[in-house]
Nucleic acid binder design. Structure first.
Lengths: 152, 152
DNA sequence: ACTTTATCGTCAGATTGATTGACTATTTTA
DNA sequence: TAAAATAGTCAATCAATCTGACGATAAAGT
C-alpha cells in the first residue's frame, strides 16, 4: 500500500471527520442539550482562566464579542456557565463554569477516550503513541498555538 | 512525552486545522476565486463521474439540491464547471469540469503535496508512511465511505 | 483633577450558507 | 395511459455569524 504525495491532508480530513462523527454519535445517544463545537472550546477556556470576560472568550475563539455573547447567553440559560459581576471592572461580567459545566467536560473527556480506544484497538497502542508524538511535532511546529474552533 | 487518554481526537482536530490553514494560506497567496470547501469536493466528484446531475452532487455532498444548485451556479459563473443538456433525461443538466476546473484540481494536488512535505520534513518520510497506513486503517474501519465536506 | 480615549457589553441590522416547502417539466412505474 | 416519482427552480426562513452604533465604565494624557 504505497501512498501518493498529497494524500495525507485528505486522509487527515477524513480521519478527523470519522472521529468527530463518532463523538457526535455518542453525545446524541445520551441526549442532553444540543451543545455545539464552540461550546466545548468555551468550557476548555473557562477551565483554565478565572474571571474571564466575554471579550476574553471572543478573542480566544477568534470571533466577535457579539457572537461570543450569544454563546455565553445560551450556555447560561442551559446552566453550564455563570455570569457574575467582575471583581475589579464594573463594566464586565466574570464568566465561570457551573458544576454541570464541569461534569460535561469530564464526560466529554471520557467520550474522547472511547473514540481513541477504538482507534487503538485497530492499530495497536504503540502506533498510537507514535502518532501522538508526530501530531505533537506538527502542532509544535505551528507555534503550539492552534486556533480553537476547528469548525465541527 | 506520555500521552493521556483522549488527547488524540483533540490533537487530530488541531493537526487538521493546521493543515487546512496551511492550504488556505497557499491558495490565498496566489489569488484566484474565493473557492470554498464544498467546491473542492465538487471537483473531485465531477472528476470521477460523467454526466452527473445536480441532484447526484447533492446526494454525494449530503446537502439539499437547492444548496448544490447554488454551488454549481457559482462555479459555472467562475468558469470551473459546465451545465449542458443531459444526454438521456430532458429534465436534468449534465455537469462537467472545464479545463480551468481541471487545472484547479491539479493545482490543489500540488498544494496538498507541499503541505504534506512540510510534515514529512518534520518527522521523516518513514513515519509519514506509517501514519498513512494507520489513517487508512481508521478510514477503512468506517466502511471506507467518509462523508465529504469535512466542514472546513 | 479632568478631559480624552479605549474597552465591556448590548441593541439593531445585514450577510451567508444552509434549510423546508411549493411548483413546473419531465420521466418512470403500475 | 394514468399515477407516482424525480430534476431543477423560486421563495421564504433559519442559524451563526458579521458590522456599526451606543451607554457605561475605566485607563491614559495633560
Amino acid at each position: 500500500m504505497k501512498r501518493r504525495r498529497g494524500e495525507i491532508p485528505l486522509l487527515m480530513a477524513m480521519a478527523y471527520r470519522i472521529m468527530i462523527d463518532d463523538l457526535h454519535a455518542q453525545i446524541e445517544a445520551e441526549g442532553g442539550d444540543p451543545l455545539r463545537p464552540a461550546h466545548g472550546y468555551t468550557f476548555k477556556f473557562l477551565l483554565d482562566r478565572d474571571d474571564a470576560t466575554t471579550v476574553d472568550l471572543a478573542d480566544h475563539l477568534g470571533i466577535t464579542k457579539q457572537a461570543a455573547s450569544k454563546i455565553v447567553e445560551e450556555l447560561e440559560q442551559w446552566g453550564y456557565v455563570t455570569r457574575r459581576p467582575h471583581p475589579t471592572d464594573r463594566r464586565a461580567r466574570a464568566l465561570g463554569l457551573t458544576p454541570k459545566g464541569q461534569e460535561y467536560v469530564e464526560r466529554a473527556n471520557e467520550l474522547r477516550g472511547r473514540t481513541e480506544d477504538r482507534w487503538a484497538a485497530l492499530i495497536g497502542p504503540d502506533r498510537l503513541d507514535q502518532i501522538y508524538e508526530d501530531l505533537c511535532a506538527l502542532v509544535d511546529s505551528a507555534g503550539g498555538r492552534t486556533p480553537p474552533r476547528p469548525v465541527w
